Simulated assay, not measured.
Amino acid sequence: MRFIFKLIRFILTPFMLLSEKLTTPKGIQRDQASQAKIDADCLQLALYEFKACPFCIKVRKEIARLSLNIKKCDAQNNPVHRQTLAEGGGRIKVPCLRITDKNGDVQWLYESNDIIIYLQQRFATN
Rank of each mutant, 00 (worst) to 15 (best):
M1V: 13
M1F: 11
F3P: 00
I4Y: 11
F5Q: 13
K6R: 09
R9M: 12
R9Q: 15
R9S: 15
F10Y: 15
F10N: 15
L12T: 13
P14T: 04
M16N: 09
M16S: 11
L17T: 08
L17K: 13
L18C: 07
L18M: 12
E20W: 05
E20D: 13
L22Y: 14
L22V: 14
L22E: 12
L22I: 15
T23D: 08
T23S: 15
T24K: 14
P25R: 05
K26C: 08
G27A: 05
R30D: 10
R30E: 10
D31S: 12
Q32H: 09
A33H: 08
A33M: 07
Q35K: 13
K37M: 13
I38Y: 03
D39L: 05
D39R: 11
D39G: 05
A40R: 14
D41F: 09
C42F: 11
C42Y: 07
L43K: 15
L45E: 01
L45M: 04
L45D: 01
L47I: 13
L47P: 05
L47T: 04
E49R: 11
F50G: 11
K51F: 01
A52W: 04
C53M: 00
C53R: 00
P54A: 07
P54I: 07
F55S: 02
I57A: 08
R60E: 00
K61W: 06
K61C: 07
E62K: 14
E62T: 09
I63V: 14
R65V: 04
L66A: 11
L66G: 10
S67H: 13
N69W: 02
N69G: 12
N69M: 09
I70G: 08
I70H: 05
I70Q: 07
I70P: 06
K71W: 01
K71S: 12
K72S: 06
K72P: 00
C73K: 14
C73E: 04
D74T: 04
D74L: 05
A75T: 08
N77I: 01
N78R: 08
N78M: 06
N78W: 03
N78V: 12
P79A: 06
P79L: 06
V80E: 14
V80W: 00
H81Y: 15
H81V: 01
R82S: 10
Q83T: 14
Q83R: 15
T84L: 15
T84W: 01
L85E: 05
A86N: 05
E87D: 14
E87L: 12
E87I: 12
G88Q: 03
G88H: 02
G88V: 05
R91I: 09
R91T: 13
R91Q: 15
V94Y: 03
P95W: 01
C96F: 01
L97A: 01
R98C: 08
R98Y: 04
R98T: 03
R98G: 01
R98A: 12
I99G: 08
T100D: 02
D101E: 12
D101S: 10
D101G: 09
K102C: 06
D105E: 13
D105L: 06
V106Y: 00
V106L: 02
W108D: 11
W108P: 10
L109Y: 09
Y110F: 15
E111V: 00
E111C: 01
S112V: 07
S112F: 09
I115H: 04
I116F: 06
Y118M: 03
L119G: 06
L119S: 03
L119R: 05
L119C: 11
R122C: 03
R122A: 08
F123M: 12
A124H: 09
T125A: 13
T125F: 08
N126C: 06
N126E: 09
N126S: 12
